[in-house]
């Protein structure tokens, strides 16, 4: 059987410093995204099968490294509100989140001893979409990627110790609690 032939992208290729054309259209981007989602889902479930709960630690570490790298160029601050804005820039539109509080609570930020907590509602999340694409449950190892990413970014921007707990996961939004510990680093 002959190999599949692709004839619609015959052209000339010249080396260039800044490539002007990516080639492909929205369907190609969609295909690439879905293939990557399937790869990620498959890797996550295999990792969990082989390493058990250790999978969470591995993915968390990968996310944390990404968070530190991504936030390196961001302005350092010890103001949580400003840091949350900066982190929104780091995470981009694919991880769109807002602060959230129950209606009876007065303030978004709760200070207790040397800890500050704020609830974050993640509305758009590539991790959630990947899990839905591959039929995997939420709160698995892949969710730890975002956990690590967020913690890495907050540690880099505020120079404090941080953690992100998953309160609730849903198909449209996930509620998480970000805790930062002053003087904990």
């Amino acid at each position: 059987m002959d190999m599949r032939e692709i004839t619609d992208n015959i052209g000339t290729f010249k080396p260039e410093l800044v490539p002007k054309e990516t080639g492909g259209d929205i369907d190609d981007y969609e295909d690439a995204l879905h293939v990557l989602m399937k790869f990620m889902g498959s890797m996550s479930s295999a990792l969990e099968q082989v390493s058990g709960r250790g999978a969470n630690a591995i993915v968390y570490q990968a996310g944390k490294r990404m968070g530190h790298d991504a936030a390196k160029m961001m302005e350092k601050t010890d103001d949580l509100e400003k840091a949350l804005f900066e982190m929104g820039e780091v995470l981009g539109h694919e991880f769109y989140y807002v602060k959230w509080k129950p209606s009876e609570q007065d303030s978004y930020v709760i200070q207790k001893d040397n800890e500050v907590t704020v609830k974050l509602l993640f509305m758009d999340c590539v991790v959630r979409q990947t899990l839905r694409r591959t039929g995997l449950p939420q709160k698995g190892p892949l969710c730890y990627l975002l956990y690590g990413y967020m913690v890495g970014a907050v540690e880099e921007i505020m120079d404090v110790k941080g953690k992100l707990d998953i309160d609730h996961v849903g198909p449209n939004a996930c509620l998480k609690t970000l805790t930062i510990k002053w003087g904990g680093k």
Partner: peptide, 11 residues
């Protein structure tokens, strides 16, 4: 409500 992107859908 904010309806999250659903890029996982195969169009």
């Amino acid at each position: 409500i904010h309806v999250a992107k659903r890029l996982y859908i195969d169009r």
